[in-house]
Design a protein around this nucleic acid. Structure first.
Lengths: 346, 346
DNA sequence: CAAATTATCCAAAGCGCTTTGGTAACTTTG
DNA sequence: CAAAGTTACCAAAGCGCTTTGGATAATTTG
């Protein structure tokens, strides 16, 4: 069923039917009722492509998911982010279109989005330091919002970020307060902006207390379980092992825990762990008492908020860019405790 | 830049330019070269909506992701599935459109896909027993392939499934061979077809050996880490605890392991675990020696294969439905060992 | 009560592409 | 060398919708 057919059934012009369905005022209430009824009866909904052609809008938002070619890894937070954004799109009759793409082809995808008119805007995932995509999107004139920020980029773009620096400063301070002087940092790839900021927060806290930073305690990579495990094994094998681990992802934290358990070290007594927790739906941080002491911020909520920001920006292109910095909650779980004294360890 | 502009620059008709770009034969090779060059120079790519309107094809595939309203959980295998499918779409110039939707609205989404012409076909995720969506898609005439199968549905539709029954039969036999007589099953929701089949395989193996099935050892739910943990705690607290666990997801298996460790039970010695492993990129089952003995089948490969099946079906609607049943690999890791004798336990 | 509004409706153009049904020029064939 | 193909191109229709610019009838106004 299309508009033409529907209007013939109704004995009305396509114009009137279209206006009635789109809620324009210049149509009699009685006839509008009738039009809506008949449209529903025939299960009519307008062809998206024709509508898009006529209006110049796609009613769709693009998400470009970069695949790190090294690990071929899909960021595990992605599903939950999408779930949050998806709610918003459904409410606003937008479609979500996804492109899985390796870094090399990312620019092509954005350009194609623009020139083919596939989407009205995009959400930029996983911003890197000096991320070149921001200038690119500005150049091609595709509306966008960034999940995170890009250090080194001056232009004024819309973003929503977690206060990663403050989160990791607070987490580090928390460990220092417990007497931990040697704290390992199991971080994401430090080309990623969030990882860079987290490291900054960690360093801030150490510097403020005059604790020396030991590069031997730092690791940085894609945040898999295996990475957490392997890093921990390496670090514990050193001559002066740490008493605490600060971890950038609950998934890597699982790997850290595995390494500890394999060595018979008890989490929260022998070794403390604080992890960042994105609030993933399938990896809840314990039911009542959290497994891990964690800095937490829901990536699903971020998905909701960012998609709303983007839709607002599309509907009002002249509005100034929006910025939102979310603070994390630091919740205490069973993975932290006072630093063991040397006596205890021996 | 649009076709009209491009053809004016070239001093050719839109017809010729269009034919040249789409590889039709009736255009001189020299002029085709020129057209391609000028198109590239001006960064031209055809408007997707106009093209779709004219051809009647969307060049897009829909994925409907149901959100279980109980747990609000996004299936964690989803990211990897999408990564596999995304590769194929990129190669074939298809777009992937995602709808996140609660069960109540799923039918609406499929109908809208069809009547609005948003997509050329869909991939059906997470088939349930007697899944009503299959009849629905047949009725509305939207091409589809199913990731899994739906017991109780007779119609002949295209699917790709893992041999879940054989996987869990083999896993159970493996445990029985090791002397385990009481094996707990931590399964997915048994309204889901895959979970039903896995349970079938488990029962087959027990029956074949004349081992009695104890309902007290069965659990079924969304496969979160917490579910694995909580189930294990409950089951171990029973008067006659099992010596082995068969788990439907590596994520839940992590929860099982957590429960064991909390009780000081050593995996592979005191308690054996076999888990199903979807080969998730961020949760590799160990680097060299697998952590868990596992039945493994890559969900990413499934994503690739299913999207290829769907595209083939769209391009040749009269071809008969395709069926592919993948066998899993059963790889031995460190989580299994002979059943402890009563003497050992005491 | 004629003139001016207002309320309803419609015909047709246009969005950017593909495709049908040509035509004109150039080759080949008998 | 006339007839029959071929080759290379083009004008225009059509995909299904929105939107502009009326038109007609009903209502209000002075």
């Amino acid at each position: 069923m299309n508009l033409k057919g529907l209007s013939e059934i109704l004995g009305l012009s396509q114009t009137t039917v279209s206006r009635a369905l789109n809620g324009y005022p210049e149509v009699n209430e009685a006839t509008r009722k009738k039009i809506l009824a008949v449209a529903a009866e025939h299960n009519y909904s307008p062809n998206a492509r024709a509508k898009g052609l006529a209006t110049g809008r796609a009613n769709a938002i693009g998400h470009v998911i970069p695949i790190a070619n090294q690990h071929e890894m899909v960021n595990p937070i992605f599903g939950d982010f999408i779930a949050g954004a998806g709610e918003v799109y459904a409410r606003n009759n937008y479609e979500m279109v996804l492109s899985i793409v390796d870094d090399a082809n990312e620019e092509k995808v954005y350009r194609a989005f623009k020139s083919r008119g596939t989407v009205d805007g995009v959400i930029l995932h996983g911003p890197k330091m000096n991320d070149s995509r921001i200038a690119l999107l500005d150049e091609i004139g595709l509306p966008f919002v960034v999940h995170g920020r890009a250090s080194g980029i001056d232009s004024n773009y819309s973003w929503l970020d977690v206060n990663n620096r403050s989160a990791f400063r607070r987490a580090t301070e928390f460990l220092l307060d417990l007497g931990h002087m040697r704290i390992a940092l199991i971080n994401g790839l430090e080309t990623m902006d969030f990882a860079h900021r987290r490291r900054g927060g960690y360093e801030d806290a150490l510097n403020a207390r005059g604790v020396e930073l030991d590069p031997a305690l730092l690791r940085s990579n894609d945040m898999t379980e295996e990475f957490g495990y392997a890093s921990t094994v390496e670090i514990l094998d050193q001559s002066r092992p740490p008493t605490a681990f600060l971890v950038s992802s609950i998934i890597s934290a699982l790997g850290v825990r595995r390494a500890l358990e394999e060595r018979g070290l008890q989490m929260g007594r022998d070794i403390s762990i604080i992890t960042y927790d994105d609030g993933l739906s399938y990896l809840a941080n314990g039911a009542d008492v959290p497994i891990f002491t964690a800095t937490r911020s829901s990536v699903r909520v971020a998905g909701r908020a960012l998609s709303e920001m983007l839709l607002a920006q599309i509907n009002d292109p002249d509005a100034p860019p929006q910025h939102r910095l979310l603070e994390v909650e630091l919740t205490v779980g069973r993975s932290t405790g006072p630093a063991p004294t040397t006596a205890n360890l021996a």
